[in-house]
């Protein structure tokens, strides 16, 4: 069964200039590196990147920065990547920092049909600037709004042809959240499995969220 498994060329054709790209991964781990290569090969530029971080200089997600494909970044931390830091300081990349837990909730809302989430994280700091404060039962919260992307890049341990996904260890990280929050969700899976082979209860991301899986 072929299902949602697509050739490299079909994946490369998904990328266009100016898109918002959401990418799974944390500190160079659990990153969909084969899809990042497809994105680089597409030549798409002026991208907005939503990811927890930008990896290291010219590694994993950092390759998109190194090859100057990214104009804007939404992330929780970019300190590991000296190239990202230098481009931000030079004014060549615009950055929005979001506390990591709030960023995850914004992805979850974007993928769950929700209008936002209320959190105490960032209250009394510059993170509340320009955001709505909402009082519930006498307590103040910051309203964090949903984030969505044109294309999501997901790394999974296993994928079946219907797009059902399972992950491994801390490589799961942001991937199940990213998988839900885009118009087109692309998957880079270590192992391509048969239908029913992953196991109903072992599946973390149901295939309904997935559009295409990169063929091996």
């Amino acid at each position: 069964m072929t299902g949602k498994i697509r050739s490299r060329d079909e994946i490369v054709a998904q990328f266009k200039d100016g898109q918002t790209i959401m990418c799974g991964g944390f500190a160079n781990r659990g990153v969909p590196n084969n899809l990042i290569q497809c994105l680089l090969d597409s030549g798409a530029k002026h991208l907005t990147l939503i990811s927890n971080d930008t990896g290291d200089a010219d590694l994993t997600i950092g390759r998109l920065v190194h090859h100057r494909r990214v104009d804007r970044i939404v992330a929780s931390h970019v300190g590991m990547n000296t190239e990202t830091v230098a481009l931000i300081e030079a004014g060549e990349i615009a950055v929005t920092f979001v506390p990591q837990g709030s960023l995850m909730e914004r992805l979850r809302c974007g993928g769950s049909g929700l209008g936002g989430v209320l959190t105490k994280t960032g209250l009394g700091t510059i993170m509340q600037e320009g955001k709505q404060i909402i009082r519930v039962d006498g307590e103040d919260y910051i309203l964090e709004t949903p984030l969505r992307a044109d294309v999501a890049l997901v790394r999974a341990r296993m994928a079946d042809p219907l797009g059902n996904l399972a992950y491994r260890g801390t490589s799961r990280n942001t991937n199940p959240l990213v998988a839900k929050a885009a118009d087109v969700t692309l998957v880079d899976a270590d192992l391509l499995m048969e239908v029913d082979e992953i196991g109903i209860d072992r599946i973390v991301t149901p295939g309904v969220f997935v559009d295409m899986i990169l063929a091996h």
């Binding site: 590991m80 491994r168 799961r172």
Partner: peptide
């Protein structure tokens, strides 16, 4: 193993009884 890394990206051995979850659950 790439799939067991800490907040610094260093690889570690998960202990007996460990559980893995996504970053939204983590927060």
């Amino acid at each position: 193993v790439e799939s067991f890394t800490n907040a610094s990206g260093q690889q570690f051995l998960p202990l007996s009884g460990a559980s893995a979850f996504d970053s939204a659950e983590s927060f």
